[in-house]
């Protein structure tokens, strides 16, 4: 029992440490500066995070992590548990063969795959992005329209992967990243000027001389601005366009030459992002009118 608790504690510590180290190089968004305007609780975003977490932690993770631990302890049953995890991926992941040949769970896989993840990093990364960008998009749409948009973006991402992927056509795709890319694209369209709070080591270091110079140049106008901050605020358009470029470049390779990029589904990210163009079908009527009259919050 004590050993289990210690294992869990070390596991969480490892996650925090790796997240911290990775955020030194690449910005990790943790929140945006705009408060949720019309709702105090973005419950659909919470619900989506909860469902994703439950599906992975309660259904997939036991096979994956207990199996790995069992193998490490020399227990041969661990292989069978890992195999069960693989079967889950191949049965409920998104595969073109399900659609074209009418086998497995057919088109239902478009929904099941959206709530499955490869490992805990995959889940954590996706949920951080969903938390950061989802709340305000939900606020702009209303919870149910937001859910419809989320599902549509995920579906479009899956379709993009299915139709354009030439690398490994029958490999199962899992993860919420396609849908979340759609949410990020919608955020870019709706709130391009918003400031996103990020952990970013390089940014924090670069900010320091910039603030010092501004303090000298602008004097009292910079009064109250802290010299050092543990987070940096980046314009949403900068962060999201960076995400778009990072996913677009390898996607062209996947589409044209069939290159594989280490299991990262960049095509789904790119297509999901582009699915955000239909966000105007889902934004609340009053906010749509405000958006086009230039008074969008």
């Amino acid at each position: 029992m004590v050993g289990d608790i210690l294992f869990f504690f070390l596991f969480i510590l490892q996650i925090i440490l790796i997240l911290f180290l990775s955020s030194l190089v690449l910005p990790t968004p943790i929140g945006d500066t705009g408060g949720v305007r019309y709702r105090t609780i973005p419950w659909m975003t919470f619900l989506l995070i909860l469902v994703n977490a439950i599906v992975f932690l309660a259904w997939q993770a036991p096979n994956l992590y207990q199996g790995a631990q069992a193998i490490e302890d020399g227990d041969q049953r661990g292989f069978m548990m890992i195999y069960q995890y693989v079967v889950q991926l191949w049965t409920y992941g998104y595969r073109t063969v399900f659609l074209r040949d009418g086998v497995g769970i057919g088109a239902f896989s478009t929904f099941t795959s959206m709530f499955m993840h490869g490992d805990v990093w995959h889940l954590l990364g996706n949920m951080i992005y969903l938390w950061t960008f989802g709340r305000r998009v939900e606020d702009a749409c209303g919870s149910w329209r937001y859910l419809a948009f989320y599902l549509l973006a995920g579906m479009v991402a899956n379709l993009g992967w299915s139709v354009l992927n030439r690398a490994q056509p029958d490999l199962p795709a899992v993860g919420a990243s396609g849908a979340i890319s759609g949410v990020m694209g919608a955020y870019l369209i709706l709130f391009p000027g918003a400031l996103v709070t990020c952990f970013w080591g390089i940014g924090m270091v670069l900010r320091l001389p910039a603030v010092l110079v501004l303090m000298v140049v602008r004097g009292s106008a910079m009064r109250g601005v802290p010299v050092w901050r543990w987070t940096v605020r980046l314009p949403a358009f900068m962060l999201l366009l960076f995400f778009l470029v990072v996913n677009a470049l390898p996607s062209f390779d996947v589409i044209q030459r069939g290159q594989d990029y280490g299991g990262v589904n960049t095509v789904a990210h790119l297509i999901g992002f582009l699915a955000a163009l239909v966000i105007f079908l889902y934004v609340r009527k009053d906010l749509l009118v405000r958006y086009f009259s230039g008074r969008f919050v």
Partner: peptide
């Protein structure tokens, strides 16, 4: 989109 997938794309 759901119908299209169910119809084998």
């Amino acid at each position: 989109l759901m119908a299209w997938q169910d119809a084998g794309l």
